[in-house]
């Protein structure tokens, strides 16, 4: 049975597209046929992060308007042949999306794919609403600062009341917390909320913590999802997240700062 995952946050710039790219790649690398859809019509970025921007012919809006078939619009990833990207249109806006059209495309994808990752735009308007409406699972991406946490809380309220599952009184969407751009040093200095602070406010199942890392920027600029950078801390953190999502039990990393870790090791 196919599962639809929405990567959402409310707030912009917290790492939704980076996360979408990483977990879609992670799921595909582990042998699951995966599609990742850019819902940010008019401000498309996913194709850049995935490094397929020069191969875009048709896009999501073309498929919704039946100007192209799904197979014409899906772009196969160059690193993994189980991963496909459905890019957003850059020349249209969110009004080009319709609930009926999005539902039809997702239904068609469900026949062929195991996981469908929906990269939500920021905000709570039409694009974000349609990205989460059909979801089975939600990855709520949050930065450790108050405005991001509040926006995530708002988005969680919408997931619980405005999604298809809520409207049809089905089992609610599974919600997972992803804490990104986390810096234990700055938490220690009181400049950032800690994992516990965020958990206290959102009371949500923590799927993983992604440390603040240069490797994320490098990965974006080179158009390769950061999860492929297996030496980087952010890449490993995303690999952990994919494993936990698939049911593996992995201890949380990157919550303590490294010095603390060594101090603990050597009792210093």
């Amino acid at each position: 049975m196919a599962r639809i995952i929405v990567v959402t946050s409310g707030k912009g710039g917290v790492g939704k597209t980076t996360t979408s790219a990483a977990i879609a790649m992670g799921l595909a690398k582990r042998g699951h046929k995966t599609a990742v859809i850019d819902f940010d019509v008019g401000l498309r970025n996913l194709d850049l992060i995935m490094g397929c921007e020069r191969r875009v012919v048709y896009d999501f809006v073309n498929v919704i308007n039946e100007e192209a078939t799904l197979n014409q619009a899906l772009i196969r990833d160059k690193n993994c042949n189980l991963l496909y990207i459905l890019p957003a249109s850059q020349t249209r806006d969110k009004d080009a999306l319709s609930q009926e059209g999005v539902g039809r495309v997702l239904d068609e994808l469900k026949k062929d794919f195991k996981y469908i990752v929906c990269d939500s735009p920021a905000g709570i308007e039409k694009g974000a609403h349609l990205a989460m409406y059909f979801a089975d699972d939600a990855f709520v991406v949050t930065n450790p600062e108050v405005s991001s946490v509040r926006d995530s809380d708002r988005m969680l309220g919408l997931l619980a009341s405005k999604s298809r599952r809520a409207e049809q009184n089905e089992e609610p969407i599974n919600e997972f917390l992803l804490l990104t751009r986390y810096s234990p040093d700055r938490v220690k200095l009181g400049e950032m909320l800690s994992v516990d602070d965020v958990q206290d406010i959102l009371s949500l199942h923590l799927l993983g913590v992604i440390p603040e890392s240069k490797s994320v920027l490098n990965a974006s600029n080179s158009g390769t999802p950061v999860i492929l950078d297996e030496k980087s801390d952010a890449g490993q953190a995303y690999a952990d997240i994919v494993a936990r999502y698939l049911g593996e039990d992995r201890p949380h990393r990157f919550i303590e700062d490294k010095k603390g870790f060594f101090r603990k090791l050597f009792g210093g």
Partner: peptide
């Protein structure tokens, strides 16, 4: 019995 989120 479910959390009441911001905006609800």
């Amino acid at each position: 019995t479910y959390p009441i989120r911001s905006g609800q």
